[in-house]
Write a protein that binds this DNA or RNA. Structure first.
Lengths: 243, 243
DNA sequence: TGTACATCAGTGAACGCGCGTTCACTGATGTAC
DNA sequence: TGTACATCAGTGAACGCGCGTTCACTGATGTAC
């Protein structure tokens, strides 16, 4: 009977979720390196050996948390893009909203952020399952730029000749419909966005920056300009709707 | 006798250095979280208790490694600034050389880099001793911009009014002789520079970027422009030698 | 509907490990007179 | 120059801890006939 089998399956899903939730709690309390199966089991009132029915090893639990974290921040970014501003709002504004949403998520989940954007956990190598979720934020940025390219147009950034082949290769891989120069600007901008967040989160801004959100918005606005988004202050306009 | 006391002191200095060297080796092999006093002692052929004559606890050894790492990358940046190009070279070129030197150091010492720019080690909070060394790279960038400001001049970046007070505060703290708008651009640029390096080092560029050095130079060049460095392509020029 | 069997979640004890830190000690190095 | 004493690097045993993982097991849930 599918409902009865469903019951067992539902129980499995619930316990799996409970394990991950408790693991996330411990992550927030102690960090990834100190995450221990025994402590999770203890807190859940189970024998530590029981967890092996759900995750074959500690590393697999870690992998699940990593995938979840990538998915969480990816979802936040996607939501911010589709929600941000009415149709009247500019793509530059949407760009900023996506970046702020990612930052907000990071501030709310610092240890999950560190898990995916901090130093790799020693002795742990990310398996293939993580590469899809890992690219979701990047895909949001690409989609946003594509959208801008097709409507407002983009101020295509300058591109030195020594970067031509790599820009073409990356564009072919990531966004064949965008000018290579835009892709060659976007990839670093993506890294730089997370540099801003990491510095704030990991304490490098302590005793240096006080008004962090305004400075972040300022920098993100600049990043938007660097990838070609028009903000009204730049009158020159290249590309655009099929022109 | 000072030579005899010197002998004891010199021995102390040598053993301290040997401990840190071995600890760095283990850092490179296993990462910071797995660094253990016992393993260091074992490798050195000492009793583990002997290390307590040199470092009162594991955390103090970690702190020493952190300070050393900040100092190492700071020195590399300073050397790159004073060495880069003859007097004929532009400040934009020097900016790029400093950034490349930092990146080269990071690629050569990935675990030491992760120690200072990755996620904080769980349960460890950096003591006061680290704040001086931690700012050395930033100081190099400030000095470079100051130099540019006094000779070539800087294209002062735009600054929204909402950031005015924070920009003024940061400028007063960090570089009272630079325009606040430049400081408000430099601080994020500093974070973004390390964002580029971290993404490369921590694996986010895997399967995305192949020609990493050219892309890095490209992005760093853009960062230089964002803080107002003139690269010949920007004819407008503000500020400058007292003008 | 009832019975025999298979599946599978969860138990609890155990293995073997490495860790940070403390402590009383030995013996060599340095110091004061 | 020689002797008594203080300093200090280094030892080795021990404490108490938590960890990941395995294994034989119990008992409840689901399945086939």
């Amino acid at each position: 009977m599918s409902t009865i089998r469903g019951a067992r399956e539902r129980a499995r899903i619930e316990v799996t979720a409970a394990i991950k939730d408790e693991a996330r709690t411990q992550l927030a309390a102690e960090g990834a390196a100190k995450l221990s199966l025994r402590a999770v089991a203890r807190e859940l009132g189970m024998a530590s050996s029981a967890l092996y029915r759900y995750f074959p090893s500690r590393d697999d639990l870690l992998t699940a948390l990593i995938v979840d974290a990538y998915d969480a921040v990816g979802e936040v970014a996607e939501a911010a893009r589709s929600k941000a501003g009415g149709p009247a709002s500019t793509h530059a504004a949407r760009w900023t909203e996506v970046a702020c949403a990612v930052r907000d998520w990071a501030l709310a989940h610092p240890h999950e952020y560190a898990l995916i954007f901090g130093s790799p956990v020693p002795g742990y190598t990310a398996p293939q399952d993580t590469v899809g979720p890992a690219s979701r934020v990047g895909l949001v940025l690409i989609a946003l730029l594509r959208d801008a390219h097709l409507t407002e147009g983009l101020a295509v950034p300058p591109l030195g000749p020594e970067l031509g082949p790599e820009a073409a290769r990356m564009a072919a891989d990531l966004a064949p419909d965008l000018p290579p120069a835009v892709v060659a600007a976007l990839v670093p901008a993506w890294a730089q966005l997370f540099g801003l967040i990491s510095f704030e989160l990991f304490g490098q801004f302590n005793r240096v920056v006080e008004a962090r959100e305004p400075l972040f918005r300022h920098a993100v606005h600049g990043l938007g300009r660097s990838v070609g988004l028009l903000d009204g202050r730049v009158p020159t306009r290249t590309g655009g709707q099929g022109a």
